[in-house]
Nucleic acid binder design. Structure first.
Lengths: 156, 156
DNA sequence: CTATTTGACTTTCTTTGACTTTAATTTTAC
DNA sequence: GTAAAATTAAAGTCAAAGAAAGTCAAATAG
């Protein structure tokens, strides 16, 4: 204990607890100043503790008035998606990805057009990277989209 | 949050909401004075937030009694999507991609959750390719997804 | 060795101000 | 009284400065 990263992690998680809509906005420099650490420490915490795999979506804006938004999915409540996530892992081929998307549709978690959009996003035609990282990129895209779906159930 | 540009953007959009004919007239100096900012700030907001690819037309007249008119374009969905396609081209950065997605939502072409799914798919976190092809991949993903929307209008 | 911390450098977005251009109004010359 | 000139009242442009956040690699801690 008592490394700053853990403390900042906890702090952000408390903010998220208090937030009504499961998302908070922070200012990197402000937070860094508050914890008397370097600004890039905040980035470190975000990438190591608030990654997609852990159920968080992080967005940011630079420039004057810039900020970082952290949104959370309540992964505990959804053992199901947790299972799918670990199945996807770091890398997934197109066939398996499509299967998972179809599954989500069958379960009534996504609508028809959402299914089609997701399939389009992870198609080989989309991920035309000339290197052998297609499946890694596909895994990331799929997980990101799934997070949105799970976070956003209310809108369904 | 809380940068003046965003506030002015919001203000103008509210004016547009209230306007009967989807267009409003403002006076640059008056507005600048109201928000206690430099007049050229207004130009900045107009070029970054009310550009033609965001669906706005801005006209102005200089000299005494001059003013700026901002009008919201009302374009047929099909032609609209086609135009956006050519704008995306081979490569697109994240900001522009998000703008296009927001536009589709604003125009009622996609739903809220579809918007979020699409934004997740083209986020930097998703497209974690270690090489300099991010923007190419992003363009492909976005176009693929838009194609689904375009073909699948009936479901909306 | 792995995880953390820091700092120098980069990128992106915003804000400001000095200068330019254009249009309307007022003044002047005839 | 009218046409040209001067003045004034807008809006436009552009580049520099400022305000964030991002990256990456070296140093440090455990």
């Amino acid at each position: 204990m008592s490394n700053i990263s853990d403390i900042i992690e906890l702090f952000i998680k408390e903010l998220l607890e208090d937030a009504s809509n499961q998302s908070v906005e922070i200012q990197r420099n402000e937070l860094a100043n508050y914890f008397k650490c370097s600004p890039s420490q905040i980035n470190y915490v975000l990438t190591t503790r608030f990654s997609i795999d852990r159920g968080y979506i992080v967005e940011s804006r630079r420039g004057g008035g810039g900020c970082i938004r952290i949104a959370q999915m309540d992964i505990e409540k959804d053992r199901y998606i947790e299972g799918l996530f670990s199945e996807i892992g770091e890398s997934i081929n197109k066939l398996k990805a499509v299967q998972i998307i179809e599954l989500l549709f069958q379960r009534g978690i996504i609508k028809d057009r959402e299914k089609e959009i997701m399939k389009a996003a992870i198609s080989d035609r989309s991920i035309q990277s000339p290197f052998n990282i297609k499946n890694e990129v596909r895994a990331n895209i799929l997980k990101s989209m799934m997070l949105v779906v799970y976070r956003n159930k209310k809108d369904f």
